[in-house]
Computed example of a mutant assay.
Amino acid sequence: MHELPDTVAVDVVLLPPGPIMDLAIGANRTLLAGNPGGGIRLDNEGCLPHISVAMFPAKREDLPAITANVDRVARRCSPMALTIDAVAKHRVNTGETVSVFHILRPEIIQLFHKTIMNAVKPYQAPPAGPEMFAGEASAASVDCLLRFPKTSAYERYSPHITLGFGDLPELIPGIDFPIRFEATKAAVCRLGNHCTCRRILAEFDLGAGVLAGHGRTVRR
């Protein structure tokens, strides 16, 4: 098991199903072809496509309580019917363009986000710098983590799957929008550089009822 620092950069996420993971990884490869140094290389193991729900620094000793709270919320939430309606782009503080799959925000995901944010709020720890992250992390990554509650939460919450750095065409061969899918899994992840999901700490099935223990802890 990987050793965790005293303070960990945490992301509670929804994990897309396999076909959506593959679409995101394929779009990421298109971006990397035009920008080989893009910094985000998605895959199915160490840099997972995901939909962030709540991002925050947490004390290592609070992770079991955080996992239990996320488990409790996930068990009470039905699988979510979601829709990717477009490629969206925005500029980050470094001036670079980031492309994402924009996801419509139905009431169920907004409620899940709000409930998770409220459940983990007591465990949000003071920041501890780049060492919170898995591997090296830029100052921009730390800033993104710390700004999440103010810039990306509650009424500002905008679900999406980050695809990488670069200007992805809005029309992609082989991809027809809208893309509808069902999200059935949530996870607590450790963040890496650019707020990528580098490691699953615990994983849950939405609406699965009481699981053995509090979620399935995953050692990777």
Rank of each mutant, 00 (worst) to 15 (best):
P36S: 11
P106N: 06
P57Q: 14
V53Y: 08
F56R: 11
L104R: 15
L23Q: 12
V100A: 09
R91T: 00
Q110W: 08
L63V: 04
H102Q: 08
T67F: 01
L42R: 05
D85Q: 08
A68Y: 06
D71H: 15
M80Y: 05
M21D: 14
R72Q: 10
K59M: 15
E96F: 11
I40F: 01
P64A: 13
I109A: 02
I20H: 08
G39W: 09
F101G: 03
P19K: 02
P64S: 13
T67Q: 05
D43N: 14
V53H: 12
G38R: 12
G46W: 06
V53D: 10
V92M: 03
V100M: 15
V73L: 12
S52Q: 04
L48A: 01
L111G: 14
G37P: 02
F56M: 11
N44Y: 01
L82H: 05
G34R: 15
V70R: 05
I84T: 12
S52P: 11
D85P: 04
E96C: 02
R60I: 00
S78R: 14
V92S: 00
A65M: 06
V73Y: 08
R91A: 00
R29F: 00
F112P: 10
T83M: 14
M55E: 03
G38F: 09
D43V: 03
D22S: 15
H90A: 01
C47E: 04
G18P: 02
P64E: 14
P49S: 06
M55F: 00
I109F: 10
A54V: 06
A33T: 02
H102M: 02
I51T: 12
V98T: 13
F101L: 10
F56V: 09
S78C: 05
N28R: 03
P79V: 06
N28S: 01
R75Q: 15
Q110M: 07
D22N: 14
A65N: 05
V98C: 04
S52F: 01
D22W: 01
C47I: 11
D62H: 14
V98F: 15
N69F: 01
K59F: 11
I103A: 05
I25C: 13
P49I: 05
P49K: 09
C77R: 14
N35K: 12
R76S: 05
P36N: 09
N28Y: 02
D62W: 11
P79K: 07
I103P: 07
K59Y: 10
S78K: 14
A81F: 00
E107F: 09
H102A: 15
M21W: 03
L82P: 12
N69V: 08
L63F: 04
R72W: 06
P106W: 04
R91I: 00
T94G: 02
R72D: 01
S99F: 11
T83C: 13
K89N: 06
L32E: 04
V70T: 01
A58T: 03
S52H: 06
L23V: 11
F112T: 05
V100D: 08
L82S: 05
V87I: 15
G46A: 06
R60L: 03
N69R: 15
